[in-house]
Amino acid sequence: MKRFYLRWGGVLVIGVIICLFGLARYQREVSHIPIEKFLDEKPTRAVRVLGMVVGGSLNRGGAGEPIQFTLSGTGAQVPVYYQGEDPENLRELKKLVIYGRWNPEEQRIESETILGVPNYGFVSWAYLVTLIPMTLFLFNMERKVALLYIMIKEEKVYQSEESA
């Protein structure tokens, strides 16, 4: 029984470590902040900001020219200056994630990448719904097998014919 619990303890530890790595990676590469929080902090490094493109504010230059528009959150608005390849998903009244940094002189976000809103909620639920019951199911079965071996060894009511 000791070996069994050691093995599953190992599995648990590895699982927790993988989850922590995953969370760290999510924080570093996927997570985004709302505009209010961004305007409060005004971080100097590049961050992802979630907001909606204000209707009528989108000002496309010609091909290769920078695009300017206003991004709005629940209360605040911020102008964005985007220079990069023409993004397909940039439309008015669309929620977007802008990856860029704050320019204090011009009072605007300067960005080179525009991303869609990541929808990981369903994905993480699907993986949790699969992996957690699967682990529990397997754990229960293995534990029962280990327990049954012990119980059969200790069961003395019936003696087999060879030992009698």
């Binding site: 079965m141 029962k144 097998v145 049954l148 071996y149 119980m151 059969i152 069961e155 009511v157 019936y158």
Partner: peptide, 14 residues
């Protein structure tokens, strides 16, 4: 294995 052992235990318990 689990189901087999369950049946074995039942048999052993008489």
């Amino acid at each position: 294995q689990m189901l087999y052992l369950e049946r074995l235990l039942e048999a052993k318990q008489g």
